[in-house]
Design a protein around this nucleic acid. Structure first.
Length: 556
RNA sequence: UGGGGUGUAGCCAAGUGGUAAGGCACGGGACUUUGACUCCCGCACUCGUAGGUUCAAAUCCUGCCACCCCAGCCA
């Protein structure tokens, strides 16, 4: 991985600089962060921002970053997500060493801390039902109420023990922190810190029937692991007083500091687990790894590289402003990476036959073509050429519009690395459908250079009709037709792009692609970057996904 | 009506009292055997807004406005 020790600074680093310098709260300590996903779904590019921040911050300061499953709610979580999360993180290029943890493995300690709070008179068992608690929460001006907050300590201790022992059904009672029922910050109005849930947990099995709430559990998890900086998103800002309260009132071994940053938004897509799940469950996409999905597995299948995603986050920066980044910027980062690494090949997505009428019927020859002009060390390959070829139907216009300088009757173009040819006409069937294009080649232009030095404006790609291989090419576009489908919270599905996937089943690709390994990426000359689909492509049936098109300054 | 935040170009984003970085997008040009890449040029007389302090303000002070988050036994 690229050395990030000199990467762009941000406000979080400014805080850390203060914390670790002489007199700071963590003077002389190693910076320690954590990435704490809840195992209830797949990671998406928004999580990658958090990963970027957590891992690179640790790296910048020579510290460590833990991976921790924040699994405090068995109702929503499942082990099946754990391995997928690990795989995605490793794919992105991050490593947590031997520091992989489950929050659930701290349940015993958390229980003890809860008891400590009760003994200190800072927590109590409340028998309000969920509805009652809601009714008694108060509002912006009126404080909350709980008839149980002055319950004797011994009684709460006993009840809490019996909660744990399974004596009560779900929802019968809760453990609440005793903080401030009249706080302007609702999170401090005696928040519930333990609830009863008789559900088997994927890690702790049937050991527990009470589970700690996020606000209580998270600061304890951080403290237990010796985290110095607990970096999270903006919506937890108003929870920080509670985070600090827990750290202050439980006798924990460390005092982590929570710092919040803005989560990522990208236009023309959605980035909430709920909405992504919706797309999957309603079969609006083929799955979590559909190449149109902003999930890491979706982006991977689409052909995005880890480097492009890391670069995207690094260059976007970190701030506290709610932002929506242009999708075009993500695409830019991908093109930038692929431009310097991707092998160039020729593929014709929407083929039309080109016949070189003055080229001998039985002749065939080969040409040497560079694999990547950006990287000569990648060498060359041999492509075959003969009388009948395929070219892109978009590269021909019988009646050219202004500024079109590719194939049209009378015009000369170059077939990439082969010959200069002059279009002589075309053949159509009765209904006007284009059947074939005719042209004459200049035998003296072998390789593409004219003997008299005359210039041609266009160079087009082609494949040999005899040796080319058939393939399916999937052209992807944005999932939504509006920039911010998230804004209309109710009907974002109304803005699904019906053309987000176009399948081109009759593509012809050069022979060298016949054994393209699933997942491998290429630049299809003049078209874009494509990768062999990791699920559906095989030597018997080649399938390529368009990762991103090339920029095109041609405007008709 | 309470609490917590945020406002710098179409989109991100530097900037921490000395006269508005950079990237994306966009427009123009050069180069080109990819209409790609690369390279040049242009793109905020002004930093949400109104005042104030100062020789000097995006930066300090005051008022106002806009937007985001919080009343799950979710995270």
């Amino acid at each position: 991985m690229k050395d990030m020790s000199e990467s762009a600074s941000n406000f979080i680093h400014d805080f850390i600089d203060e914390d670790i310098r002489e007199g700071g709260r963590y003077e002389g300590m190693k910076v320690h962060t954590r990435f704490p996903p809840e195992p209830n779904g797949y990671l998406h590019i928004g999580h990658a921002k958090a990963l970027y921040i957590d891992f690179h911050t640790a790296e910048k300061y020579g510290g460590l970053c833990n991976l921790r499953m924040d699994d405090t709610n068995p109702t929503k979580e499942d082990e099946e997500y754990v391995d997928a999360i690990k795989e995605d993180i490793h794919w992105l290029g991050y490593d947590w060493g031997d520091r992989f943890y489950y929050a659930s493995s701290y349940f015993g300690q958390m229980y003890d801390y809860a008891e400590e709070l009760i003994r200190k008179g800072l927590a109590y068992v409340c028998e309000l039902t969920a509805d009652q608690m809601k009714d008694m929460r108060g509002d912006l001006t009126k404080p909350a109420v709980s008839p149980f907050r002055d319950r004797p300590i011994e009684e709460s201790l006993d009840l809490f023990a019996r909660m744990r022992a399974g004596e009560f059904e779900d929802g019968r009672m809760t453990l609440r922190a005793r903080i401030d029922l009249s706080s302007g910050n609702f999170n401090m109005r005696d928040p519930v810190i333990y609830r009863i849930n008789h559900m088997r947990h994927h890690q702790t099995k049937d050991t527990w029937c009470i589970y700690p709430m996020y606000d209580f559990a998270h600061p304890l998890e951080d403290a237990i692991e010796g985290i110095t900086h607990s970096l999270c998103s903006l919506e937890f800002e108003s929870h920080r007083p509670l985070y600090d309260w827990v750290i202050e009132n439980c006798s924990v071994p460390a005092k982590p500091r929570q710092i919040e940053f803005a989560r990522l938004g990208i236009n023309y897509t959605v980035l909430s687990k709920r909405k992504l799940r919706n797309l999957v469950e309603n079969h609006l996409v083929s799955g979590w790894d559909d190449p149109r999905m902003p999930t890491l597995c979706g982006l991977r299948r689409r052909g995005y590289t880890p480097e492009s995603i890391r670069s995207f986050h690094e260059r976007n920066g970190v701030s506290k402003v709610n932002s929506v980044v242009d999708y075009a910027f993500l695409e830019h980062c991908l093109r930038e990476d692929l431009n310097r690494t991707a092998r160039r090949v020729m593929a014709v997505i929407d083929p039309v036959k080109l016949i070189l009428t003055n080229y001998p019927e039985d002749m065939t020859e080969t040409f040497e073509v560079e694999n990547n002009p950006e990287r000569p060390e990648d060498g060359t390959r041999i492509v075959r050429f003969s009388r009948e070829l395929y070219i892109e139907s978009d590269d021909f216009m019988e009646v050219p519009e202004k500024k079109f300088f590719r194939m049209f009757p009378g015009n000369e173009v170059r077939l990439k690395s082969a010959y200069v040819i002059r279009c002589t006409g075309c053949v159509r069937d009765d209904s006007g459908r284009l059947l074939e294009i005719h042209a004459e080649y200049d035998p003296n232009s072998r390789g593409g250079n004219t003997p008299d030095g005359r210039r041609v404006k266009a160079t087009i790609h082609w494949v040999d009709s005899k040796t080319c291989v058939s393939a399916e090419v999937r052209l992807y576009d944005s999932l939504f037709t509006v920039a911010e489908p998230d804004l209309a919270d109710c009907n974002y599905l109304d803005f699904l792009n019906p053309e987000s996937l176009k399948v081109m089943s009759g593509a012809k690709v050069e022979k060298s692609l016949a054994d393209a390994k699933p997942g491998s990426g290429f630049q299809f000359l003049r078209l874009g970057y494509f990768c062999a689909d990791s699920k559906d492509s095989s030597p018997e049936r080649l399938v390529f996904n368009r990762s991103v098109s090339l920029k095109d300054s041609y405007k008709s």
